[in-house]
Amino acid sequence: MIKQTDTELSLRVFGAWATLILFGLGLVLIALEFIFHRHGETSLEDMPLFPAVFGFLVFVVIVFGGVILRKLIMREEDYYGDH
């Protein structure tokens, strides 16, 4: 078994805490959405939980878009021969 460094261990702990806090924040925001009856600049935004769903989906689409783009335009580091 590969021994983890102290930094890696603390990064895992940090990651776990960050996940927990973000989940908590997400739940609080969903609750606030219904308490304050949020409205947006456009009628589309007025749909319940629109920013949450939109933010999550768009983020995933952007990352997968990047993965597809990588197949098309990624070249070796010394592509221009100036490294």
Binding site: L29, P51, A52
Partner: peptide
């Protein structure tokens, strides 16, 4: 609230 929702759930997408 709208902005925080967008950001927090996008960050959750990253974690996912």
């Amino acid at each position: 609230i709208g902005q925080m929702e967008l950001l927090v759930f996008a960050m959750l997408a990253f974690i996912f």
